[in-house]
Every structure is written in C-alpha cells, then in structure tokens.
Nucleic acid binder design. Structure first.
Lengths: 140, 140
DNA sequence: CTACAACTTCAAGTGAACTTGAGGTCAATA
DNA sequence: TATTGACCTCAAGTTCACTTGAAGTTGTAG
C-alpha cells in the first residue's frame, strides 16, 4: 500500500501518517521510488494508536508502549490506572450530561442559580482530575 | 475576594483566572485600586467551567453555553443535542474502560490476539469518537 | 514611612499534535 | 514523449490553553 491507500483506509491524512512515522509510531516497509510503502498491518497499528489516544495517552506514551519487535507491550498497571482515570472521566461526563439535560428544562433565572444544577456541580467537580481535554475538528 | 483568594479556593493559578476573564468565562465585580475583586459565586462558575472542560468542551464552547446574557433563554434543543452527544461519548468511554480493564488481566500472548481487545480496537476506530484527550503530566 | 508581597498589563513563549506551503521527484497514463 | 497527479522533504505556521517575563502599581505590615 502506498500512503494514499493507508490514508483512505484509516481516515487519517497522509500528513498525519508521515508525522506518525517520524514520531516512530508506525513504519513504512520500504520505498517505491521515493514513495513509502506500507504493509497492511499498519492499519491495525493505527487502530491501536487511536485506542491509546482515546484512552488519554499522548503520542509519546504510545511510542513507549511498543517494543522493538513492533508488538504492543502495554504495562498492565498502567492499563488499570488508565481505566481508573476513564472511570472518573465517565462520572464527570455523566454529571455533565445530566446537568445539560436538566438545564434544558430548568426554569431558574440562570442555570447557575438553580440549586439542583449547583449541587450537581459540587458533586461532579469534587476532586476533579488534572487533565486537559479538547474536542477535535467539529467542522463536518 | 481578590484574585489570590479565588486562586487558592479554586486551585487555579491567577494567570488562568485572568485568562478566563479575558475569554469571558468569568468576570470580576470591580476593582480595589487596580486589583480585581471577585464575588464568591465565581467559584461556582469555575466549577462549571471545570466540569465542562472535563466533559470535553473547549473554552469557546463553554463560553457559548453562557452567552445567554442573563436571560433564561438558553437554546434548549442545543442543550439536548449536546447531552445526546455526551451520551454517545459516555458509552464509548465505558466500553473503552472495560476493554482496558480486560486487557490488563488478559493473558493472551499479545493484546492484539485477544478477541475482546480486538473489539475494543474497533470501538476506538469507529470514527464516532469526537473527543481527544491528553494528560498534562503536570506533577505538582 | 518605607519595604515588599501581591497585584497589574501586555507581549511573547510553550508544548502537543498536526497542517500547510514551497519546491522537487517520478511512475503511469494520453 | 510529455503531462499529470500523487508522492516526496523540510521549514514554518496553526490552534488551544495556558504560562512566563518584564516593567509598573499599590495596600498593608513593621
């Protein structure tokens, strides 16, 4: 496969694939002229990378998870820790969802003045975790 | 309260509070000399902001949720839609968490060979996850 | 009254994760 | 054979959410 094929199969732009290769997240198997050639299993690898990203790992952390033979070697404790973080995160999302849903119905002059909403806030932000989150390009 | 009090109560550095004010996320109630004065309810607001951040909203999106210049007329449909989106995200994160937890225990030779892990991969790749998360390995 | 800690502004810097642009290469088609 | 379009490299640019630094101001403790 050349980079265009990988791009269309993975949904990632070629620029990202080149960047990932540069970062050591994937590797091409050779060149045809100056064009990179990829093995089909790169798609699996990209899926694994996507998984890691979604679980909150940085690219650097993900690189660290791959051994030299290319097989993932994920530290099980790290995995557990990550699951715990996700758990917290899920609770916050649930709180947010409920808060939004309530806000849509609530008649208080301002959502911030609604006791229910405030109570939710206190519960949800209690011991809030140190993380940065953003939504990806929502332009579609 | 002056900015230092807000900082110590919220756990956010003063620079962040100034930045949030500049972005319209919070507002000071006046000045004492050139020092900002904040009303105590700014802490609630900050809690709401933290909640939104943790739920995966950008600062811009959070501002947009407040944009209701005091009036109770927040766009209900948009709120419901947002809640729906969160619901989707929650489901995926739950799947992810369970998958991670399983992967930590699974004894398959490689995670890639475990059917459950493969299912996880599919979830991760199913292009519906809009959120992107990263940790700020900010060890304090 | 003076020292100084805590504030102020504004501009520039940071790091992560990409994206874009300029300028170049090359294999496959017309 | 000439064109085309998908690829290439490398550097610089972009966005987000802040942080840092320089230079200045001020309320208050000593």
């Amino acid at each position: 496969m050349d980079i265009g094929d990988v791009a269309s199969h993975s949904g990632l732009p070629a620029s990202t694939l080149r960047y990932y290769e540069e970062r050591g997240l994937i590797q091409s198997t050779g060149r045809h002229g100056l064009r990179r050639l990829f093995d089909a299993n790169v798609l699996e690898r990209l899926a694994l990378i996507a998984l890691g990203r979604n679980a909150g790992f940085s690219l650097g952390e993900i690189v660290a998870m791959f051994t030299t033979d290319g097989r993932p070697q994920i530290d099980r404790d790290q995995l557990f820790a990550k699951a715990g973080e996700l758990d917290k995160n899920i609770k916050q999302l649930v709180a947010m969802r409920d808060g939004l849903r309530h806000a849509a119905k609530c008649r208080a002059p301002s959502h911030l003045e609604c006791p229910k909403f405030q109570r939710l806030l206190r519960i949800a932000t209690d011991k809030s975790i140190k993380r940065r989150t953003k939504l990806t390009a929502k332009s579609e």
